[in-house]
């Protein structure tokens, strides 16, 4: 069953025909050639497919493309402006916060989203005072908020350092 949908992907409007079964992840990768978001598990168990949809980070592998008509989708590629990388991307490079690089775009989307979430007063399960107005990004807070993105090369220590540096500035 095919459906025509329109998405805004990394700032560009894209109209495409998808099978109703097509996930947002497969729509991006196989129909639009946007391969920044990665397929790691296809079941919401690794976070490699994380993109922002209408400003919120979500697992694109569990999102049906037809259900996102008109959505604004941002991948890690869309965070950069031309050749100018996003500060989180630059920090990941200087802290060597990745090795194979496959989970990296998802990590970076998560990192950018989570700094905003903490700033906007979204608590996490390790937040000491649930009732606080904002949640300073301690190492523990960063680690918990980034735990939906697995990294098998295990660059976690560097990922946390990379985010800490951007969060401080």
């Amino acid at each position: 069953m095919e459906r025509k949908i329109t998405l805004r992907v990394d700032g560009k409007e894209r109209t495409l025909t998808v099978d109703t079964r097509t996930t947002l992840l497969d729509a991006l990768r196989e129909r639009l050639g946007v391969t920044s978001a990665k397929k790691g598990c296809d079941h919401g168990q690794c976070g490699a497919c994380t993109v922002m949809v209408d400003g919120l980070r979500v697992n694109s592998c569990l999102t049906l493309a037809v259900a996102r008509e008109g959505a604004e989708v941002v991948t890690a590629d869309g965070l950069a402006e031309g050749d100018e990388l996003h500060p989180v991307q630059r920090s990941f490079i200087s802290h060597d916060a990745f090795q194979c690089g496959y989970c990296t775009p998802g990590q970076i989307i998560s990192a950018v989203a989570m700094m905003r979430e903490a700033e906007e007063g979204w608590p996490s399960v390790v937040s000491e005072d649930l009732d606080a107005d904002e949640f300073p990004l301690s190492r523990e807070e960063i680690a918990e908020r980034m735990s939906g993105n697995l990294c098998r090369c295990a660059a976690y220590v560097n990922i946390v350092e990379a985010i800490e540096e951007v969060a401080r500035s």
Binding site: T35, S36, A37, K38, T75, A76, D77, L79, A80, L85, Q89, R90, F92, I93, S94, D96, F98, G101, Y102, T104, P105, I108
Partner: peptide
């Protein structure tokens, strides 16, 4: 720093 870093942080390295 990894020479391919700028590609990987955008998701532009080709797997």
């Amino acid at each position: 720093k990894r020479v391919e870093g700028p590609l990987k942080v955008r998701g532009a390295a080709t797997y």
